[in-house]
């Protein structure tokens, strides 16, 4: 199964490279416009490459399951973020080369006297800088997530539209019907993609609403929200996966947030999400009333025991609300009567804030489960692990095995914890392919 995902992963990287370089490759076909000096052509090539990468950002964030399955949603979103810097560099160097080698082009910066092609180009670059800045410093700028998401979508669309306008008005590389067809196809593909994301997908969700069954408090300032499909059969998911939830209004709303399932995958007719109160949106979960409508777009993610059927045992390392996907996996394995050995290393602030503490104790009766609590502020008589999960704790509690690929390790929690755990596992010589993590706080 892993080999299958590796092949798919390489395939999509190849497709991405092909799509990203397609404008450059196709522009070389057919009759070429009159050649100009190297730096001007290099500048133009970088502009086309930057536009191509920016357009592909819409594909990366369109939540295509086939695209995310080989890597995991967090990798795709992180790549979306990192490739922005590459595209931004290309796009910024595009005019800079012109300014350096043809200083007369500096006059194009004067938007009052500049031709429309330059106005479109300059505005696109300025808006792209705003878009990137808003994403990098959203928290510092105190921009609320939902508001940021709306503006992120609007700005991205305007930037690409202006950039295409810039290309069309510049005309230099639209000298043959083939190249004109390329850009028309490119435009249709892009508009079609936007229509799919903004119209078709929400419309399909509209026909598959869910209703709130219950909202129950959990330890650790968290709430378990249970929803049932209304007049449809719902969907199957793998334990450990997540979905995007939109509460009330309509699925066309931009106010949607990703949460892991905490319920058993063997009960798909009832989905539970356990959500910690961390921000404006999560604080509203407790106010939901039974019967209220929510929309669930999922499942997504590759973080699941079901992707590793060959494993002889599993280790789960969770911090705080990172227990949610682990709980879904544990509940599912209990439902299935799975007897493979399981180790859960679970870090929390104190004994009272351990979400699912009692249920974990009960699960030890039905599963071959060892739970290791790690407490930052343990009670006076605590003789268990203290502080943060570190290499020494991992060494003490990880099952010993000299066979790679037989113990699969899942990590979910705050980023510093995940970094420390991954470093610890690496130091202990655990093969990179044997541990898995997924994180979502990217902006």
């Amino acid at each position: 199964m892993r080999k299958n995902y590796v092949i798919k992963g390489i395939f999509w990287i190849f497709v991405y490279l092909l799509l990203a370089s397609a404008p450059l490759l196709i522009l070389l076909l057919g009759k070429m416009p009159e050649g100009r000096e190297f730096w001007r052509e290099f500048s133009v090539a970088l502009g086309f490459a930057g536009l191509s990468l920016m357009s592909l950002q819409f594909v990366l964030t369109a939540r295509f399951k086939f695209l995310k399955a080989p890597y995991g949603a967090d990798i795709v979103y992180h790549f979306h973020r990192q490739i922005t810097f590459v595209a931004l560099a290309f796009i910024l160097v595009h005019p800079l080369l012109l300014f350096v080698f043809s200083p007369d082009t500096l006059a194009l910066l004067n938007l009052i006297t500049a031709p429309w092609r330059a106005r479109a180009g300059v505005t696109a670059v300025v808006l792209l800088l705003v878009l990137t800045g808003m994403s990098l410093w959203r928290r510092k700028m105190k921009i609320e997530y939902t508001r940021w998401r709306i503006w992120h979508g609007i700005l991205a669309t305007v930037v690409v539209a202006l950039a295409v306008t810039h290309v069309v008005l510049a005309r230099h590389y639209l000298n043959t019907p083939l190249k004109q067809t390329l850009w028309i196809t490119y435009g249709i593909f892009w508009v079609g993609l936007l229509a799919y994301i903004r119209i078709l997908k929400p419309f399909l969700l509209l026909k598959r609403p869910y209703r709130v069954e219950s909202v129950l408090p959990e330890r650790g300032n968290a709430w378990s929200l249970t929803v049932r499909p209304a007049r449809h059969s719902g969907f199957h998911f793998m334990p450990g996966q997540f979905a995007w939830i939109t509460i009330g209004n309509s699925p066309f709303s931009e106010s949607e947030h990703p949460f892991s399932f905490s319920s058993s995958a063997e009960q798909p007719e009832m989905l539970t999400f356990t959500i910690k109160e961390l921000g404006d949106f999560t604080r509203t979960i407790k106010t939901l009333q039974p019967g209220q409508v929510v929309y669930v777009d999922g499942p997504f993610g590759h973080f699941s025991v079901d992707r590793h059927p060959h494993a002889e045992q599993f280790v789960m390392i969770a911090g705080g609300v990172g227990i949610t996907p682990m709980m879904s996996m544990l509940r599912t394995l209990a439902h299935r009567g799975d007897k493979r050995p399981l180790t859960l290393i679970y870090a929390n602030r104190d004994w009272e804030s351990i979400t699912f503490r009692e249920e974990l104790e009960r699960l030890q009766d039905s599963l071959t489960l060892k739970v290791v609590h790690v407490l930052e502020k343990p009670p006076a008589n605590w003789d268990g692990e203290k502080g943060y999960i570190n290499q020494a704790i991992l060494e003490r509690h990880l099952p010993k095995s000299d066979k790679p690929n037989k113990i699969e390790i899942f990590i979910c929690g705050p980023q510093p914890m995940m970094n420390a755990v991954e470093q610890g596992l690496s130091n202990l010589g655990i093969p990179f392919g044997d541990y898995h993590s997924e994180q979502f706080s990217l902006v």
Binding site: Y16, L24, R40, A45, A49, I75
Partner: peptide, 30 residues
């Protein structure tokens, strides 16, 4: 650790496209 993969992938794709852009410019300007 996993994020390093996407960072290096972005760098790799950036380099490949940069090489293509240079080749494009060379072909056009010769």
């Amino acid at each position: 650790m996993r994020q390093k993969f996407s960072t290096w992938l972005a760098v790799f794709i950036g380099i490949v496209i940069l090489i293509l852009a240079i080749a494009f410019a060379l072909l056009q300007s010769i």
